[in-house]
Design a binder for these strands. Structure first.
Lengths: 250, 250
DNA sequence: TTGTACATCTCGGGT
DNA sequence: ACCCGAGGTGTACAA
């Protein structure tokens, strides 16, 4: 069997055969088709006839893509179970998820292409510039917050949530850091405030510092009104000098 | 020209030809390939060699899918600009986004399938069970909140945010509703609290009610501690009896 | 363009 | 299984 099987304008029988082959062989299935889509689960949706790309992965992920946007118009998450059946002469792909129960049905009005891809992939994404790396940075260089700052806990569970970084300042005050890898908004300030207020119930002096590359206008206002602070810190991008073959992209 | 062009195990020249054809013709391009992926922008990532599905849409959306998970491992949002070039005998797909500047590069080590799909789609998703429909419901049936409740504003901008529903109770107290279409969490409570406190600065009696199908344990505790309230409401799913041909899926 | 909040968010980590 | 929060979140909508 080869890595890829593809048939343009397949017969219904060929569609069924290839789909069954893909579903039973850990292969990734891609279909170009004119179709209708029905979904019922956490919400409910209908999509009238049109040309779409369908992707069914061996882990049960099911994507329905229109010709615009990054997001699938309909989908089913990993773990869902796919079947294909014929109803009144129309092929129907059906994907069922349990817990929560969700059903996705795609009526295949006309299939332009079926392709089966035995994709082998043992690599995982390596990403830098995350919030976790901001925390690392602050533990390595606490002076980025202020002189004398001592970070003590990381991902510390408190009364009403989980604090990014908990530490003490030069004067012994408890300090809560809320880190954001991108521009911080109102939500981030509310989050910080929730932590500060929870800690204030058990400690006398608690400071809250929002640590981010920037703030929205509204976040800045709310932060001031609440007596909270801001420190500008960029999420660090590690140099991965992996194999020395990678040039700078940007 | 037909709706679909596909070549299995294409030569480099054929890849280049089909890709150029797709990029200049509003067609959706799909490639099965062994590839490496490099990204630099808001963050930075590297992905070693493996088999993936690449999708490039006519609006510039660029997806790199591994054989698991619903999410693309790498991507570029709509509006990005794609080019294909050859570097040291290797074909490279390059997508550039401006604002923020982000570059995605895919090294095509081996191409198993190139397919070009002139997808025609004039349909839009019709979805029910959203938060917006919960708001509609409450304006139609305010008694779902409590007897005498009068909803007044929808999506009302206040000092620090935008309130879902603002109204008055039987006794003339200002009432803020925060709606969640699914189980409400700590975040939802913080959001509601932010609105209530903003309104309290200008009004004497303000009540805050979280309206959702259920609550997380933590949300319930915080809600109680803050003197806020909860009303159980399910997001309504409209019956779309469209064309009478649709059976219930679930 | 910026700000704000929803989403069938998805995903991972912790308890 | 539930809870919690990050995300290159994406997406729509309003100011």
């Amino acid at each position: 069997m080869s890595k890829v099987d593809a048939i343009v304008n397949p017969s219904q029988d060929n569609v069924k055969r290839l789909v069954d082959a893909a579903l039973s062989s850990e292969a990734l299935l891609t279909i170009f088709a004119r179709c209708r889509v029905h979904y019922d689960g956490r919400a409910k949706s209908e999509l009238g006839p049109g040309d779409r790309v369908l992707i069914i992965k061996p882990d049960g992920s099911f994507l329905v893509h229109q010709n615009r946007k990054r997001e699938p118009v309909n989908w089913q998450p990993p773990g869902s179970l796919v079947t294909i059946e014929e109803r009144n002469g129309v092929l129907i792909l059906r994907s069922v998820r349990r817990k929560p129960r969700e059903v996705l049905e795609v009526e295949l009005d006309e299939v332009y292409l079926v392709s089966v891809f035995k994709a082998e992939d043992y690599e995982e994404l390596s990403l830098t510039g995350s919030e976790a790396e901001m925390a690392d940075l602050i533990f390595r260089r606490p002076d980025l917050i202020e002189p004398g700052f001592k970070p003590l806990y990381r991902e510390k569970t408190i009364k009403h949530g989980i604090v990014d970084v908990l530490g003490r300042d030069r004067e012994g005050n408890l300090v809560v850091l809320e880190l954001k890898r991108r521009k911080a908004d109102l939500h981030a300030v509310s989050q910080l405030k929730r932590y500060v207020e929870a800690l204030k119930m058990e400690h006398p002096n608690v400071r809250g510092i929002l640590v981010a590359p920037s703030l929205t206008s509204g976040a800045r206002k709310l932060l001031r009104n609440e007596g909270l602070e801001f420190r500008r810190v960029e999420p660090p991008k590690k140099d991965r000098r992996d194999k020395g073959r990678q040039r700078t992209l940007l």
